[in-house]
Each structure stands twice: as structure tokens, then as C-alpha cells.
Amino acid sequence: MTALLSVRDLSKRFRGLAAVSNVGFDVAEGDIFAIIGPNGAGKTTLFNMIAGAMPCDGGTITFAGERIDGLRSDQAAQRGIGRTFQVVKPFPALTVEDNVVIGALLRTTSVNEARGIASEVLTQLDLIARKDQVASSLTLPDRKRLEVARALATRPKLLLLDEVMAGLRPTETDRIVAILRDLNRAGLTILLIEHVMRAVTALASRILVLHHGAKIAEGTPDAVLRDPAVIESYLGAEAL
């Protein structure tokens, strides 16, 4: 399989702090790739650079055979990178449906067609009953799902999910896991940041562990989760 996304030597500094340093990895087409690591490890920063929301200080990002570092986030989205925000960012005064229609309008110039896509995606994410509700009135789990729905409506090749399961109840987590698995089967490549290990092990075919901005392990879930360095720096801390 060819790599859909290749990241090489990616770095970002915030004043003195090295938020991400020399991180590299490949995400194969059709994969579910998870990034884990303790709070402040630099996961969201890494995402922001891939999605073009933040310029990188060094390194390259190649997506579908094309260099995308240096692009703005709207350009990244146009090339097929959909994303959610860890701190959700719905369009608050608009209805759930309109939120998703706006996403869908990236791929079509017809509003009616966009409505069709929106209702498809909303059905998939169990939000269709809420479609006329204003986004700001949703509960947090629903808002997280709205984030996913809006990103999906842009018909991405690669979906970046930043902790969409944080704060969800186990049944809700399982529901999202099932949805993501379906999407993946239908051909979507997913890169996800997650603290909920249950979801990670259930979904990911590869895991990358980030710690203080650096990659400390990468591989199959089995291999990574048995890695002593990982257990010490992350899983151990979590277990406490």
C-alpha cells in the first residue's frame, strides 16, 4: 500500500518550548492510525500542522503525493483533509443541518445536493433527529458528533479526529467506534488522537506514541502497548 500521508522531521516551537520535534510517520491508505501520548505531548499541534491551521517550523508533509506543508487550512481541506477540533467549534447560531450543509458545499455547488449529503451523514451519526436544532443548544456528546459529521460532509480522503471520544459514556464511545469502523471499511483513512485506550485498541492498526513532542514508539497496537518506554511514560502514568 502506498502512503496517503507522509510526515517527515516535522517540528514546531512555541517560544522556547519544543511542542513537536522531528516527528515522522506514514499513514497508509485505508488505515486507521492512532496518535497517543500524555497531555501536552504535542498531538494537537501535530494535527494543526497537518491540517494547515498552523505553519510548521521545519519538516515536510506529503499528502496523496503532493507537498502540503505551507498550505492554509482551507487549501488542505480542499485537497481532502477533514478535521475535527478538540475544543469543538460548531457554527453556534446555525442549525445542525446547516452546519453540515456548509461542510458538504465544499464538494458541490448545489445546495439541494448538499442537503442530501448532510442528511445522509446526519443519519449515519444519529443526529438526524436534531437537524433543526440550533448547534449551540446541543449537548457536548452531540457537538462532538456534529464535528465529525461536518468534517465527513466535506468527503475527505483523510479524516483527522482530535479526541472525539473524550467525555463520552462507554455506550456512546462504542457507537462512535462502530461508526468509524464502517467509514473505514467504506474506504476512509483515519488519523485519530485518542486518550480512550479502549477505542484505540478497537480501531487502530498502527499507533504512534508522542511524548514531550517526540516520537517514542510506533508500530502495531500489540507491539507498542508492550513497549517498556511507552508503559513508563504514558500508560504507567495513566494507570496511576
Binding site: 491540517a51 491551521a53 492554509r72 487550512s73 482551507d74 481541506a77 480542499q78 477533514g82 478535521r83 477540533f85 467549534k89 460548531p90 457554527f91 453556534p92 447560531a93 446555525l94 446547516d98 450543509v101 456548509i102 461542510g103 458545499l105 465544499l106 445546495v111 448538499a114 461536518r150 468534517a151 460532509a153 466535506t154
Partner: peptide, 18 residues
Amino acid sequence: YRWLAVREDPEAARAVGI
């Protein structure tokens, strides 16, 4: 629709390709 998105949240608007 794009205008509304930009009004509501410019960063999120960008993320959907606007």
C-alpha cells in the same frame, strides 16, 4: 452559507475548505 460560516467561526470555516 459560506458567509454564515465565516461569521460564526472563521477557523472552523477554514477547516471545511472555505
